[in-house]
Amino acid sequence: MKAQIGEARLAGNAAATRPLAIEARGLVKRFDGFTAVDGVELAVPEGAIYGILGPNGAGKTTTLRMLLGIIDPDAGYRRVLGAERPHDVARAIGYLPEERGLYPAMKAVEAIAFVGALRGLPLREGRRRARDLLEGHGLGYAADRQIRQLSKGMAQQVQILGTLVHRPRLVVLDEPFSGLDALNQGKLEKMIRGLADEGTTVIFSTHVIAHAERLCDEVAIIAGGKVPFAGPVDVARDRIPAQVRLETRASTGPWLAALPEGARQEGRFWHFALPDTGVEPLLRTLIEGDAGILSLSIERAGLHDAFVAIAGEAAARALEAGAGDEEMR
C-alpha cells in the first residue's frame, strides 16, 4: 500500500512536490465489530482537487469524518493543515456533510452567515459576505427568502455557500453533487475549479466517476473500506494500456507480422494494446510494408476502466448502481 501511494505521488506529478494539506496513514474504524474503514492512506497536496471515489457504503463518509475529527479512528495517524488534532484548525476548514439541513425559517443570507459564525466569522461580516456570494452565484434575488421557500437545489447551493463564507483553506464536501440537477452540477464544478485556482484545497467524495474524471488532480479509490489506489488520475488510467484502432487499405502483407500479439481484426479495423515501444516503430513498419494506413487512433483508458481494473467488477457494479439511483431521483 505505502509503495503504491509513493509511486503514484512521484510519477511525474507536480503536486507531489507541494506540501500536504491532509495526510492519513493506516486509518481504521470499527462499528460494533464491523470494520468500516480498514487501513486507509491518503496524501492530499495543498491546492489540489482530490476525489474519494467509491460506491455507497464503501467508507467514504467515515473516512472524511475521521479526517475532520468528528469521529476518532481506532488506529492510524492523520494530520490536517499541519495539525494532528483537526479541531485545532477547524476555523480554516469548510465542511459540507452528506446529510443536508438548514433551519427552514431562516433567510438565505442569515443561514450562510450562521454557518460562517460556527467557524468564527462575525455575523455582521458573514451577512455582508453572504450577499456578495449569493449575488456572485446568481442567487441574489433569493437572499431574503426563507429556506423553506427555496427549491431543493437552491437550498443546497445556499448550504454550499455557507461552507465557503469564512474563506477556508481546506474545503471538504461529502457527496456534494447528490440531489443537484445537471445545470447546478455544472455550476458546482465551476465553483470547485475556482476555489482551486485561488489556492484552496478541495477534497470531495463521490460515487459518480464523471465528476472525479473531470475535476480531480488525484483520487483515492475506496472499496470495502480499503484504498487499493491513491494518486494522480493519469497514473490510475495508465494501469490499462492505451488501445490502438488501425484501418488499412491492404489486407495482407509482411507488415502483419509487426502487429502486437493479441491484435484482433474486426472488419477493416485492427484493435490492439499500444506497444511498450510506442506507436512510431509500428508506423514505420506499416509504411515500409505498404499497409496503406487509412486511419489510426489511440485511445487511453478512462477512469471507469481504471476503477474496474483496480477495485474489481463487484465494486464497479455497486458504483454504477449508486449513480443510477441518483439519476432516478
Score class of each variant (00 low, 15 high):
208 V>M: 09
210 A>Y: 14
211 H>P: 12
211 H>E: 04
212 A>Q: 12
212 A>H: 04
213 E>V: 09
214 R>E: 14
216 C>Y: 15
217 D>E: 07
217 D>F: 12
219 V>E: 05
220 A>H: 05
221 I>E: 15
222 I>V: 11
223 A>W: 11
224 G>S: 15
226 K>N: 02
226 K>F: 00
226 K>Q: 03
230 A>K: 01
231 G>N: 13
232 P>Y: 10
234 D>C: 06
235 V>M: 15
236 A>E: 07
238 D>R: 12
241 P>N: 09
241 P>K: 12
243 Q>L: 14
244 V>Y: 02
245 R>Q: 04
249 R>I: 01
249 R>S: 08
250 A>Q: 03
252 T>V: 15
255 W>E: 10
255 W>C: 11
255 W>I: 01
255 W>P: 05
256 L>H: 14
257 A>F: 08
257 A>L: 11
259 L>C: 08
260 P>V: 04
260 P>A: 04
261 E>L: 07
261 E>R: 13
263 A>W: 11
264 R>Q: 11
265 Q>R: 09
265 Q>T: 10
267 G>W: 01
268 R>H: 14
268 R>Y: 11
269 F>M: 03
269 F>K: 07
270 W>L: 06
270 W>I: 04
273 A>R: 07
274 L>T: 07
275 P>L: 09
277 T>I: 07
277 T>C: 13
277 T>V: 13
279 V>H: 02
282 L>Y: 08
282 L>I: 07
284 R>F: 06
285 T>Q: 02
286 L>N: 06
286 L>H: 00
287 I>A: 13
290 D>M: 06
291 A>W: 04
292 G>R: 10
292 G>T: 00
293 I>P: 11
295 S>V: 08
295 S>E: 12
296 L>R: 05
